[in-house]
Amino acid sequence: MVENRPFAQFMAYLTLALGVVIVAFPVYLAIMASTFDTATIINGNMPLVPGDQAAENYSRTLFYGGMHARQPVGMMMLNSMVMAMGIAVGKILISILSAFAVVYFKFPFRKTAFWIIFITLMLPVEVRIYPTYKIVADLGLLDTYTGLILPLIASATGTLLFRQFFMTIPDELLEASKIDGAGAFRFFKDTLLPLSLTTVAALFVIQFIYGWNQYLWPLLITTKSSMQTIVIGIKMMITTTDALTEWNVAMTTAVLAMLPPVLVVIFMQRLFVKGLVETEK
């Protein structure tokens, strides 16, 4: 369609630009706030251009922490990283294997198994939080990485995504590899896995961010401050009642918390988009 309506076009761009500003301004504000000292932020006249406290804020936050939390954010980031990676990798492993089973093997109650997996979509962590907590506590997994990761790695979304992808792979490919002497596992390793790489990447991005942003579950099962994740760290920095919030440290932590997901998205964006839209086999 060829159209030339400058006013309509201007309005469209204006709307879009407004949307970008609404989303981006708080982020910009957080980044700016991480470059000033507490006093500058508190007095309400924080300039919108970078200050000179960036190096000081970042090194103090990373290696020492705030006045109240007293935990170096570097360590929280490590905890979050272990949890997010564990969840993402674990989810991918479990869901690709269960999708493989559901699509390529004929066993009794195959459909039932698939529907049970499907139904778990309707049971997020929040709904089953008490029994899950009880089990994890009884297993002695409180304050461990295993306890943080394990209850979150079952993934119906991942299983569904892989199942849909596997169903688009022509049966002849399986038959050709049967004739080529490849058993089930070899077919999985040599053919299915390489073809699923983009789907794996897409799922990794989604699940890494999901894992990184977990709040309720780590809040429940971590009691030691050395096991805290960064999302909880931010929360602890701003809810102090009898003292000034160190806004510079909180904002620095927020910026640091944004960093890994942003990097994951930036570096995996191309694969991610391909994985979600790819139809060519």
Binding site: P170, E172, L173, E175, A176, S177, I179, D180, G181, A182, R186, D190, T191, P194, L195, K281
Partner: peptide
């Protein structure tokens, strides 16, 4: 036996060489 399929069923991620070598490798 060896079979040639209607849609060829070549392994899309392998080079032509690897496609032909795969059965022998296995």
């Amino acid at each position: 036996i060896a079979m040639v399929f209607q849609n060829y069923a070549l392994y899309p991620h392998m080079s032509v060489y690897d496609n032909m070598a795969y059965g022998l490798k296995n």
